[in-house]
Computed example of a mutant assay.
Amino acid sequence: MDTLKSTSAGMVFGAALTLSRVYVPTVIINQLRLRDFHMLEVFLTASASSALIMLGFEKFGIAKRSVRTNSSLGWFSYYDGNIIGGSLLGVGMGLTGACPGTVLPQLAQGIESAPWTTLGAVLGGAMYAKFGKSLVFSSHSSKDEDPIDLNNHTISSKFNASPSATFLTFEGLVITTTALSALLLPGKTFAILPTVVGGLLIGAAQVASITLTSSPLGVSNAYQQLGSYLCRAIGFEDVPRPPFPPKSILFALGILIGSAVSGPLLPKLANAGVVPISNIQAMIGGFILVLGARIAGGCTSGHGISGLSAMSFSSLITTAAMFGAGIVTQLILK
């Protein structure tokens, strides 16, 4: 039953990513080049709708918000893992035109760079499975922590604001930014559905994920689980075996299936290869992408959508580092 639930939740997310076309490498790269704001609008709408969903579920006693704690390397800050991991994730996004979640629809839709990005991502997961736990002091969801401790990790606690004021401010900023972007900023080259509709579809995937798996959206752990199997296969028996059934892998499998099923509903992409990505660039980028996501304790969907929606301060830092590093990476590559 858990197998079916995890796969089904992934299918909904995979279909949402595909129908919103936020997975297209050109969309992601042109967002980082500040030329196309399709991704931003989908991302913000998904975050805003997910925040409403999480608030509603918490108010009705269905599920608690999964506030994410800090990720610390013990180098220079309580949040240095979020800063460094988020930055690596952004560099990987800039190199590959993918996120840990969107590379799976890229595979299903036959994007040429996707197999190499996936290979690099699994190797990055293996690297973290072998060495990451000794590097990172804290990198996990705090949904099972004592509520008092959980509250210390929220945006409202860091800014000494009430949770309701923080929530309303977040929703207001998202709505205003999305509206201004839609009216004033360029892009949406590959959009079939309005970007707000695409974001709401991802919000629906959030409902499916929390309802079916009791966890919010997040993908990067699947690569760590795959990496654990790889490490054990080549003789590293000290790497823990993933729990059975491996829910994160099943969720990722569902994303592939959902994308494969929903893809034929859309017209074929035109000029999908506008931004060329070499195989070696894709593989290196995939490695950096997932290694960074695991160091930060979450990926674009885990921190950027689910974490921000739960008002996690660590997710705010990670997301800022991720997009900042991705923009800088594309400026350098140009």
Rank of each mutant, 00 (worst) to 15 (best):
L183H: 12
L173F: 15
L185S: 13
P216V: 01
A204D: 02
T177M: 13
V207F: 11
L201F: 01
S215W: 02
L200S: 04
S220I: 01
G199H: 05
G187A: 12
G198V: 08
G187H: 09
G218D: 04
T213W: 06
A208M: 07
V219Q: 09
P186G: 13
T176K: 07
A208T: 09
L184C: 08
L201K: 00
G203D: 06
I192Y: 09
G172D: 08
V174M: 12
G172Q: 10
A205E: 06
P194Q: 11
T189K: 13
T176Y: 14
A179G: 05
L200A: 08
L193D: 06
G218H: 01
G199D: 09
S220E: 10
T211R: 05
P186C: 12
L212D: 03
S214E: 14
P194L: 11
A208L: 03
T189Q: 14
V174L: 12
T211D: 05
L180D: 07
T189H: 14
G199E: 04
K188N: 15
T178Q: 06
F190V: 06
G187F: 10
Q206S: 09
L212H: 04
I192E: 11
T211H: 10
A191R: 07
F190C: 04
G199I: 04
S220L: 08
S209Y: 07
S220H: 05
G187I: 06
V196D: 00
L184M: 15
L193V: 11
G199N: 07
G198R: 03
T189N: 12
I202W: 00
S181K: 08
G218P: 06
F190L: 09
S214I: 00
P186H: 14
A191M: 08
G218I: 00
V196R: 06
G198F: 04
S209L: 03
V219S: 03
T189M: 11
L183Y: 13
S215H: 10
A204L: 15
A205H: 01
A208Q: 03
A204I: 13
I210C: 05
G218N: 04
T195N: 14
A204Y: 01
T178F: 10
V207K: 01
T195S: 15
T195Y: 02
S214Y: 02
T177N: 08
L180K: 10
L184T: 15
L183R: 14
L200K: 04
I210N: 03
I210Y: 00
L173V: 15
V196W: 11
I192Q: 08
V197P: 00
L212E: 06
P216S: 11
S214R: 12
T176F: 15
T177G: 06
P216Q: 03
L212F: 10
S181W: 06
L217Q: 01
G172H: 07
S220C: 12
E171S: 11
P186E: 13
G198W: 05
E171F: 13
S220Q: 08
T189L: 12
I192W: 08
V196P: 00
T178L: 10
S214H: 13
G172M: 13
Q206K: 02
G172P: 02
S209E: 06
E171I: 15
L184P: 01
S215T: 10
I210D: 01
Q206F: 00
